[in-house]
Simulated scan of single mutants.
Amino acid sequence: MIWRRLAQLYFGLVLCGFSMALQIEAALGLDPWDVFHQGLARRLGWSFGTVVIVVGAVVLLLWIPLRQRPGLGTVSNVVVIGLAVDASLAVLPTPRDFWARLLTLSLGIVLNGVATGCYIGANFGPGPRDGLMTGLVRRTGGSVRVVRTGIELTVLATGWLLGGQVGLGTVLYAIAIGPLVHVFLPLFTVRERAPGAGEQVLERG
């Protein structure tokens, strides 16, 4: 069972990076965290994947005062997704017309939902950004909805100011990702997990 969980974890993380690359190539707007990553990448001249890794590591450091404990999935999330998105961007073609871009965007969002279900369902710990959210909820006593919305609005606004792309994809991702994860997470959740694990949803990177 452990090997199946490990395979599912790393498949999900690689697929997450691939799905992010599809959304980037579509050039119709990204989810809030990726708007932030893209804005930083453009300002710093770094690759998108490098920024994903560095931001993930910095967010993971914020777990220390929140007394969050990372798992194998948490650490792997920081590294694997960034490597996968850069590798995918190196080989993916860039769609030209609007409908091809819209199809690429839609495929990226759906695959992101599948990827999220896979790596969270493997039950090796949440990603660094999800852990930040749950840690803040625990420390502040706020609701998940309020804390998550506050974090995502902050990174979205910051990323937009840095030059990250906000657009149709941003809206479609916000609308679709919750229902998609709601469908795919139960399909991929390992049943031998501890009760409640895998419920911390809504992180690709």
Rank of each mutant, 00 (worst) to 15 (best):
A90T: 10
L92C: 12
V183F: 10
L9C: 09
V80Q: 00
S19I: 00
V147F: 00
A27V: 11
V166E: 05
L13E: 02
V201P: 01
W33E: 03
L72V: 15
G113T: 05
R101A: 11
G117F: 03
G56I: 03
P93D: 06
V171F: 11
L30E: 05
I177E: 01
A157N: 06
F18P: 00
S106K: 05
T50V: 15
A90Q: 07
E25V: 12
L61S: 14
A197T: 14
G39D: 01
S88H: 01
G196F: 09
G196W: 08
I109N: 01
H182C: 08
R191P: 12
V110W: 03
Q200E: 11
F98T: 14
G56W: 00
T158G: 15
W33Y: 10
R145S: 14
D31T: 06
M133P: 04
L161S: 13
M1L: 11
V51F: 05
P95A: 09
L22F: 05
V110T: 11
G167A: 09
G12M: 04
F188Q: 08
T149R: 12
A7Y: 07
R193A: 15
G82Y: 00
L89H: 03
P32D: 07
A90F: 08
R129D: 04
L172T: 10
R4H: 13
L83D: 01
L161P: 08
L185C: 09
V181Q: 02
T94E: 14
V190R: 08
S106T: 15
L22R: 04
V54M: 12
T140R: 12
G127V: 04
G73L: 00
G150R: 02
I2A: 12
P95E: 05
E199Q: 14
R145L: 15
G17Y: 00
T50E: 12
L202V: 13
V78G: 03
L13G: 03
L28D: 01
P126H: 06
V171C: 08
T74S: 15
I175Q: 07
G141N: 13
G29P: 07
G167Y: 04
G121R: 03
L62N: 12
N123W: 01
S143I: 10
L172D: 05
G150T: 11
E152L: 12
L107V: 15
F36R: 02
Y10V: 15
L168E: 01
V58N: 10
V78P: 02
